[in-house]
Design a binder for these strands. Sequence first.
DNA 1: TTGAAAGCGCTAACAA
DNA 2: TTGTTAGCGCTTTCAA
Lengths: 377, 377
Amino acid sequence: MDRNAKKKATIYDLSVLSGSSPSTVSAVLNGTWRKRRIAEATAELIQELAEKHQYTANLQARGLRRSRSGLVGLLLPVHDTRYFSSMAQTFEAHVRSRGQCPVVVSACRDPQEERAVVETLLSYSIEALIVAGATDPDGVHQVLEAAGVRHVNIDLPGTKAASVVSDNYTGARLLTEAVVRRAGSSRPLDAGDLHLFGGRDDHASRERIRGFRDARVDLLGADPDGCITATGYSPGTSQRAFEAVFARDGRLPRALFVNSSINLEGLIRFMAHHPDDAFADLVVGCYDYDPFGSFLPFPVIMIRQDVEAMIARAFELLEEPRPAPRIHLIRPDLVPPRTALRGPLDALKDEAPAEPQAAPRPRAAAPSLSDGRTATV
Amino acid sequence: MDRNAKKKATIYDLSVLSGSSPSTVSAVLNGTWRKRRIAEATAELIQELAEKHQYTANLQARGLRRSRSGLVGLLLPVHDTRYFSSMAQTFEAHVRSRGQCPVVVSACRDPQEERAVVETLLSYSIEALIVAGATDPDGVHQVLEAAGVRHVNIDLPGTKAASVVSDNYTGARLLTEAVVRRAGSSRPLDAGDLHLFGGRDDHASRERIRGFRDARVDLLGADPDGCITATGYSPGTSQRAFEAVFARDGRLPRALFVNSSINLEGLIRFMAHHPDDAFADLVVGCYDYDPFGSFLPFPVIMIRQDVEAMIARAFELLEEPRPAPRIHLIRPDLVPPRTALRGPLDALKDEAPAEPQAAPRPRAAAPSLSDGRTATV
DNA sequence: TTGAAAGCGCTAACAA
DNA sequence: TTGTTAGCGCTTTCAA
């Protein structure tokens, strides 16, 4: 901690050094000095001094005084999914480009945790919050509203705040149609051959199920019961659901609608315990895109939610003074099997050589591992 | 923002309401009241009032006063990778369990951005920081050291602060051996059949290359030049590297050591443009684990870095008063093809039914989409 | 063009 | 057992 922390320089230090008052220093250092008509020379002097002494403003103090912090938050259900991690990646770029500081936190799909996390963020005077995939968006809304903090829901809508949501119904229809077409191309598909796995009682799942059923009726002429299994968003329960159906029928349904990439993880856990022929003529549709998931050894058709567009729209809504609590649908894309899409990482400049080149032979063994500073666990 | 924000209650409000002084209220509300020997009755009264008026402490003010904030940071290169997103997930759980507030930010592998981000975090008086995969850990160290903030490197080591690093040399040896064994089982493998792709001039890549070479010499008796291609951590450049080799040789090398899951994304981008027979007898080793990557249509052997152990060790080091700037190696695990490992998401309780069950038929179309509150893009 | 002074909400001596 | 007081570092009138 502060064993040897040279205390950070403050405006008072600079005030003494420069011979100006703290308020002048403050103005110079926070950019308001032009409109305060401070002499160019004074400003320059102070800026030099600041540079020299490595001054950086104490943002807590500033936040306290201004009662806003420059922080913009993103509340996620979980980090460890390509869908949500790409959301975090995209979100950060947006916030940075606006000169603010992104804060990403997750709340594990627990309504209580959601509210607690938001309270914490409020205590730090965040200025705006994007609430992604919240289990209880309206509960979260209530505490944000009381604090007067702008916010918008994304992924899962609430009824009290503006929401940006993927067009789950249409996406599910598209996906179902694609799966049916693909699975039916080899051998006619029966309505009972098509199962939906995953999701739970949230808006996205309901809409997807609705799209799934409508498409099934349209294409296969029936909508039998017992072909929809809610598993929640957990790889473990999803796996067990697949195991259960497999145990019952001796095989997996030929055509699968998997509600999210997390549920798709359940399917590969199932795969790990079964020989390849269990997947011989399997066709899978997965709501959510994962680049590696798209290249599994059986056809996986995916729906890519347009995260970039969703985040962009969310920020537009944050601008609006009083956005109506309605749902803004963003059209997702159907992704054929074996498709590698570009993601937010592609926007980053990598310092790798423009043309990949052969690596130079290292002069010797890496020093850091040969000088005895290492230990093993 | 504060269009209708009822200002948050402060200790002064409660002080008036309760008839106690602000300092008493403060003590009661931050838990130090027992040792300040405040009367049970007083405390209860104040707590009731706080509850009633929905008091929550202003953490910026507290942080300013105490010059520490309760914030613990994780600095990532990028979010959008299963490796780093699982790190974020694991990190958050740890910090939460310690009653502090996790803040995850990324800096795009840009040394300047890294320092800038850290400065920002410092301005918010973060109490500790885990610096993951930093391009310039020592630069970051310098600014943290000056501020007296505890920190440890993870994934990529620095020379000035303690570092927790996967045992890349051993991992790479293991991986190379496994790949050679597997690829050689069908048909004898030539040293030139084994290429390494990905990585750049950082500690991890150097160590992995070292392990790769040593293993190759041991097993195949030679270490030819031109079989190592640095591509940086970018799917795009990786893809181009594969294309280049393919164009040159008319095929991919039979055995591939891929330096990270990001580079593996480059391989699947390549796949997308080539027919299956380009991968007919391909064997891939990938340093990094991705659940879906493990189930690609050719054997992918992976190295799973033990993120849980790395994070745990990092927190232990943060506890130590003055940890030596040495490297702590954590042994990674070899993951055979088609393996689905449990991850941090499995630790979460999901509210899904314990036994997956058939979803109830929805009473009607989801209301939120049929009441005209929607729009499409 | 600049400075003095008050205060954001909280904590921590020190008094009482 | 409780209250008084002096800031933490910054912004922002208001006055000069």
